[in-house]
Design a protein around this nucleic acid. Structure first.
Length: 935
RNA sequence: GUCCCCGUAGCCCAAUCGGCAGCAGGCAAUGGACUCAAAAUCCAUACAGUGUGGGUUCGAAUCCCACCGGGGACACCA
C-alpha cells in the first residue's frame, strides 16, 4: 500500500498537482494487483479465489476505437467514462463485471499514411495503439487488460479468417431458415432430395458440381455490378457510397462496374434480422433505421406477357391490379431490347415517343440521357421522364393491353426492375400518367372530392370479384388468384443487398482462400490459419485517374508473386495454387470482437462454449442473449451493427454460440461538440483564445463568427483529455464529463466550467483531510437525525440513478450531500465513508486515496456500495399544498400514514376562508402530492 | 419531400404516474466575509414560467393537434 507509508504526503488542498501525484500511483496499484481482472467460469482466466467468483455476471462493452494518429479529444472518452463509472458501481454492487477494451486497427488511414511515408502500417498502428492505451490508462479506466487485443493481431485475425471459412462452408436452408454446413447440401443433391436446376447431379461434371455448390455458399464469388472507385483503387460497399455517387472516404467518383468480387449472403438473413429486432433492448430510432435499411416489403410477383416474353413485376399492392394501365421498366432492364419493335404502332401519342423516329432510337436516346445523369440528378428532380418502348403487355387479370414504358423512376436494383403502374393508387404513377396522358382507373374508392393518387384503405372498386373488399383482404385474394391461375405468386423483397466483402487494399485480413487450375475457390483448412499478411514494398493499390471508369483493380498483394503462388497439399497431393489477393473490409474485425473478449487466449476455439454461455448466453426463454450493455455512437446504427448481427446469427446456426444476437442492450451516447471561430477571411482561429464581449466574439481585436460542430485539428477547437488531466487531474475531468448532462445527449464542451467539478472534489477532500496539517479530520461522532436521513435519501437516489445511467443526477445528489456536510462542525465517518464509496465510480483515484486515509486496506473496488436503510427513507411528515381551482391557497402537514379522508378534511378546513362557504364540487387527494379542490 | 429526436433562467441541465417549475447540481453574474491586494475558499443574492398558438384535464414542461427553430436518418424501394 503506497499511500499508507507516506507521512510527507502534501497536506494541502486537492489540486491538480496533488491529483497528478495520486492518480498514477493508483493506476500502478490497479495494474500490479490485477484489480479489474474478471474471472471466467472455465479455462485459463478462471479464478475460484476471486471476490466475484460465482457472482451474477455483467458484460459491458464500448464500441472499440480505431486508433488514429490524432489521438483522443475530450469527446471520445465520454462513453468510456460512462461505462467505466457504471461498471465500477456494478462491481461494488456485487456483480462479476466484464469490461474490456480493444482496437479496431485495420483500415485505410494507416494504409494511406504508409503510402505517403513508406512506414509500415503495422508500425504506425502499434504506435497509435500505445498512445491510446496511455491516454486511456491516464483516465483511470478499469479494463481487464488481459483481454485487450487489436484486430490486426494474427492471433485475432486467425479467428476472423476461421469465421470466414465457416461462412464459406455453409449454405442457407430456406426450409429451416438457418445456415447449415455445406456438406448437408452436397448430401441432399447426391441423394436426390434436392434437385439441381439444369441437369441431374449424377450427370454433372466435377466442375459443374463445384459451381453449383459455390452458388449456394454464404460467402461466394460473384461477377456483379459493384461500386468501382478508381481514385481509391478499390471497390466499395453500397453503404460506403454517398447518395451523390462518391466515395464516403476521399470523396472520389464511384462507377458501376461488373467485377468479380466476394459477397456475403446477408440477404438470406433479411427476415431474421428484421424479426429479431423485437427481442432487443435498443433505442427505437436505431431499430427503425435497421428496418428501413433492410427494407422488407411483402407483396406479389405478377407475370405480364409481352409477345412471347414474360415480364415479372414486383408490387406491394396486388389488390390494385385492375387499375394497372401501363407498365414501366428500368432503362437497364434486360428485356427492353428484345421487346422494342422496329416501328411505332399506329397511332402513337406523340408525347410518348421523345420525338424519335422509331422506338429503338427513342430507347437508345433515353438510355443515354439516363446514364449521363448522376444518381443524385436522377433522384433530385421528381419530374417524371420516360419513353414508350412501342410494346404492349397483357394484364393477366382482364387481358387488357397496356403500353410498356421505360423510365428512370423505376430502379433496376430493386424488386425485378419492372413495375405495373397504377396511377389511381400510387403518387409516382399518377404524376407519370399526367405527363404522358395515360388513363387512370381507381380501384380503391377514394373519399368524396379526393384528388390525386389515393394510397389509403377503402373498399375495392372497378375490380370485378374484389369489389367491396378492404385492401388487406383484397391483397390476399388476389395473391391466391394469381397463384391458382399461374400468373404470379406472393413475394417478399428487400432493399438490403448482399454484402460486398472484398477490398483491393493491403491493410486488411487476407482471405483464407486459394484458387486451383479451374479458377474456382478452395478453402484452406483450419490448420493453415492464420494466413499471415505478408510484408510488401508498396502498400497502395494501383489508383487511377478518379474519372477513369474503365480502369481495372490491381491489389497490393497481387504484386507479391512469391506469396501469391503456393505449393500446397490440400488433399489431392502437392499442387500449385494461387492465393486470393483481395483483403477483407474493415468491418470484418468488428463483426465478432465481443466474443473474443470472453476468451482472448483460446487457441482451440474462437470462444469456449462455457465462457460464451456464461457471459452472453440467453437468460430465459425468448431472450436473445448477448452483451448486457453496448455503448457507442449512433453513426454505427446500420452498418457495423447489422454486419455483426449477421455473423453472430451464422455462428449461432452452426452451433458455435448460444446467443442469437450479439448485443442485447444498446445505448447511444451523445457527442461532445465544440464551438469553432472564423475570422473575416474564413480562416479558423484558435478557439481557446476567443473572448466574448456583448454577445459578440473576438480574437484579439478582431470580431470572429462562431459555428458549432465537431472538434477537429483544422477547426482549431480541439481540447484533449491530456490537457484536462494536466490542468485538473483525471478525476475532475471524469466528474465533469459525467455531470454535464445525460449520457445520451449531445452538448458543447466548455473548458471554463470544469472548475466546478474540481471545487466539488476539493470539498469532499476537505471533509476527510485537514488542508493545513494533512491529518484525517473525520470524526466517529454519529450523524444528527436530519443529516442521516439526507445521507440515506442520497444513497437510495444514487443507486437508482446509477442503475439507469443517469450519472449527472447522481453526481448532483452527491454534491448536494457534500454541501450539506460541509458546514457541519464535524465530518462524521458515518456520512463521509459512504460518500467516498459513492463517489468512487466517478473519481476513483481520489476515492481510493481517501479510503486509504480513512484507514482501510487495499482497494475499494470490491467494497460493497452503500445500501440505504429503508427506515431512514420514511419522511416524518408530508406537506400537502392545497389548491383551490388550480391555485395554491394553503398547506397542511400530516404524518405519512394519515388516511386519505383525514387529509381531505384537514385540507378543506385549511382553505375554508378561500371557499368562503361555497361547496366544493370535487376534492382530489393525490397521495404524497397535493390536494385539489374544485368549486 | 417523408420519418425520428430535441426546445425549461445568460449557458450546461433537474423535475417517478400529468400533481407546488429549481434548498437537484454546475458555469457565468452580483454583493459580502477573508486578504495590504489578488487568487483560492466560504456565505449570500438575483435571474425563467417551460419555442409559439390551440385542445384534453380539477390540474400540462409532461398527453393530443398545428406551426416555428435546432439536430439526425432516409430520399422515386413499387
Amino acid at each position: 500500500m503506497p499511500t499508507m507509508s507516506e507521512p510527507e504526503t502534501p497536506p494541502f488542498r486537492y489540486t491538480a498537482a496533488l491529483a497528478n501525484e495520486i492518480e498514477p500511483r493508483w493506476q500502478a496499484y490497479w495494474a500490479e494487483n490485477g484489480t479489474f481482472h474478471a474471472p471466467n467460469p472455465a479455462g485459463e482466466l478462471a479464478d475460484p479465489d476471486h471476490p466475484r467468483h460465482g457472482a451474477p455476471k455483467l458484460h459491458v462493452q464500448d464500441m472499440f476505437p480505431y486508433p488514429s494518429g490524432a489521438g483522443l479529444h475530450v469527446g471520445h472518452p465520454l462513453g468510456y467514462i460512462g461505462t467505466d463509472s457504471y461498471t465500477r458501481y456494478k462491481r461494488q454492487a456485487g456483480f462479476n463485471v466484464l469490461h474490456p477494451m480493444g482496437f479496431d486497427a485495420f483500415g485505410l488511414p494507416a494504409e494511406q499514411y504508409a503510402v505517403q511515408t513508406g512506414t509500415h502500417p503495422a508500425v504506425t498502428t502499434a504506435a497509435n495503439i500505445e498512445r491510446y492505451r496511455g491516454q486511456l490508462r491516464r483516465l483511470g479506466l478499469a479494463y481487464d487488460e488481459r483481454r485487450s487485443f487489436a484486430t490486426t493481431d494474427p492471433e485475432y485475425y486467425r479467428w476472423t479468417q476461421w469465421i470466414f471459412l465457416q461462412v464459406f462452408n455453409s449454405w442457407f436452408d430456406p426450409e429451416l431458415r438457418k445456415a447449415r454446413p455445406i456438406e448437408t447440401l452436397i448430401a441432399a443433391f447426391e441423394s436426390g432430395e434436392k434437385k439441381a436446376p439444369e441437369k441431374d447431379w449424377a450427370d454433372m461434371s466435377a466442375i459443374e458440381r463445384r459451381k453449383l455448390i459455390d452458388d449456394h455458399r454464404l460467402a461466394y464469388v460473384s461477377e456483379a455490378p459493384v461500386n468501382w472507385c478508381p481514385g481509391l483503387g478499390t471497390v466499395l460497399a453500397n453503404e460506403e457510397v454517398t447518395p451523390d455517387g462518391r466515395s464516403e472516404r476521399g470523396n472520389f467518383p464511384v462507377f458501376q462496374r461488373s467485377l468479380k468480387q466476394w459477397m456475403m449472403r446477408i440477404t438470406a438473413y433479411g427476415d431474421r434480422l428484421v424479426e429479431d429486432l423485437d427481442t432487443l433492448d435498443w433505442p427505437e430510432p436505431v431499430k427503425l433505421m435497421q428496418r428501413n435499411w433492410i427494407g422488407r416489403s411483402r407483396g406479389a410477383h405478377v407475370d405480364f406477357t409481352v409477345g412471347d416474353d414474360v415480364i415479372t413485376v414486383f408490387t406491394t399492392r396486388p389488390d390494385t391490379l385492375f387499375g394497372a394501365t401501363y407498365m414501366v421498366l428500368a432503362p437497364e432492364h434486360e428485356l427492353v431490347d428484345k421487346i422494342t419493335p422496329v416501328e411505332w404502332p399506329n397511332p402513337t401519342n406523340p408525347k410518348w415517343t421523345g420525338q424519335a423516329a422509331s422506338p429503338r432510337e427513342a430507347v437508345a436516346a433515353y438510355r443515354a440521357q439516363a446514364a449521363a445523369k448522376t444518381e443524385e440528378e436522377r433522384t433530385e428532380s421528381k419530374d417524371k421522364t420516360g419513353v414508350f418502348t412501342g410494346a404492349f403487355a397483357t394484364n393477366p387479370v382482364n387481358g387488357a393491353k397496356v403500353p410498356v414504358f421505360i423510365a428512370d423512376y423505376v430502379l433496376a436494383g430493386y424488386g425485378t426492375g419492372a413495375i405495373m403502374a397504377v396511377p389511381g393508387q400510387d403518387e409516382r404513377d399518377w404524376q407519370f400518367a399526367e405527363v404522358f396522358e395515360l388513363p387512370i382507373i381507381r380501384t380503391v374508392a377514394a373519399p368524396e372530392g379526393f384528388e390525386g393518387a389515393f394510397t389509403g384503405d377503402g373498399p375495392a372498386v372497378n375490380s370485378d370479384w374484389l369489389d367491396g373488399k378492404g385492401v388487406v383482404e383484397a391483397k390476399a385474394e388476389m395473391i391466391a388468384w394469381l397463384e391458382q391461375h399461374g400468373h404470379g405468386r406472393g413475394a417478399t423483397t428487400y432493399r438490403l443487398r448482399d454484402w460486398l466483402f472484398s477490398r483491393q487494399r493491403y491493410w486488411g485480413e487476407p482471405f483464407p482462400i486459394v484458387y486451383d487450375e479451374t479458377g474456382l475457390p478452395v478453402a484452406l483448412p483450419d490448420s493453415m490459419l492464420p494466413v499471415v499478411l505478408p510484408d510488401v514494398d508498396d502498400f497502395s493499390p494501383r489508383t487511377f485517374d478518379p474519372d477513369d471508369a474503365d480502369s481495372e483493380p490491381e491489389t497490393p498483394l497481387s504484386r507479391k508473386k512469391d506469396w501469391v503462388n503456393v505449393e500446397l497439399d490440400l488433399g489431392d497431393g502437392l499442387k500449385t495454387y494461387t492465393r486470393e489477393t483481395n483483403t477483407m473490409p474493415q468491418w470484418a474485425g468488428s463483426c465478432w470482437y465481443e466474443l473474443r473478449y470472453l476468451d482472448p487466449d483460446n487457441e482451440k476455439a474462437l470462444v469456449d462454449p462455457d465462457n460464451e454461455a456464461y457471459w452472453m448466453g440467453p437468460r430465459r426463454d425468448g431472450d436473445s442473449g448477448g452483451v448486457d450493455l453496448y455503448v457507442g455512437g449512433v453513426e454505427h446504427a446500420v452498418l457495423h451493427l447489422l454486419y455483426a448481427r449477421f455473423w453472430h446469427k451464422v455462428l449461432y446456426d452452426l452451433g458455435h454460440v448460444s446467443s442469437f444476437e450479439p448485443f442485447r442492450k444498446l445505448f447511444n451516447q451523445g457527442y461532445i461538440q465544440a464551438y469553432a471561430f472564423q475570422d473575416e477571411r474564413g480562416f479558423y482561429v484558435p478557439a481557446e483564445e476567443v473572448v466574448e464581449r456583448d454577445g459578440k466574439w473576438f480574437y484579439g481585436d478582431q470580431e470572429v463568427t462562431r459555428s458549432y460542430g465537431k472538434m477537429g485539428k483544422s477547426l482549431k477547437n480541439v481540447v484533449t483529455p491530456d490537457e484536462m488531466c494536466d490542468q485538473y487531474g483525471a478525476d475532475t475531468f471524469r466528474v465533469y464529463e459525467m455531470a454535464m448532462g445525460p449520457l445520451d445527449v449531445s452538448r458543447p464542451w466548455e473548458t471554463r466550467a470544469v472548475v466546478g467539478s474540481q471545487r466539488f472534489l476539493q470539498r469532499v477532500w476537505r471533509l476527510v483531510i485537514d488542508e493545513e496539517t494533512g491529518a484525517v479530520r473525520s470524526s466517529d461522532t454519529p450523524l444528527d437525525a436530519k443529516t442521516r436521513k439526507h445521507l440515506h435519501r442520497t444513497i437510495a437516489g444514487v443507486r437508482e440513478d446509477m442503475d439507469e445511467l443517469r450519472f449527472n443526477t447522481a453526481i448532483a445528489k452527491l454534491i448536494e450531500l457534500t454541501n450539506a456536510l460541509t458546514p457541519l462542525p464535524e465530518a462524521s465517518r458515518e456520512a463521509v465513508e459512504p460518500l467516498v464509496l459513492m463517489l468512487s465510480p466517478f473519481a476513483p483515484h481520489l476515492a481510493e486515496e481517501l479510503w486509504a486515509k480513512l484507514g482501510h486496506e487495499g482497494t475499494l473496488a470490491y467494497t460493497t456500495f452503500p445500501v440505504a436503510d429503508p427506515a431512514q427513507l420514511v419522511a416524518e411528515s408530508i406537506t400537502y399544498p392545497v389548491q383551490v381551482n388550480g391555485k395554491v391557497k394553503a398547506r397542511v402537514s400530516v404524518t405519512p400514514d394519515t388516511p386519505e379522508a383525514d387529509i381531505r378534511a384537514e385540507a378543506l378546513s385549511a382553505v375554508a376562508d378561500a371557499l368562503s362557504g361555497r361547496d366544493p364540487k370535487k376534492v382530489i387527494v393525490v397521495p404524497g402530492r397535493l390536494v385539489s379542490v374544485v368549486v
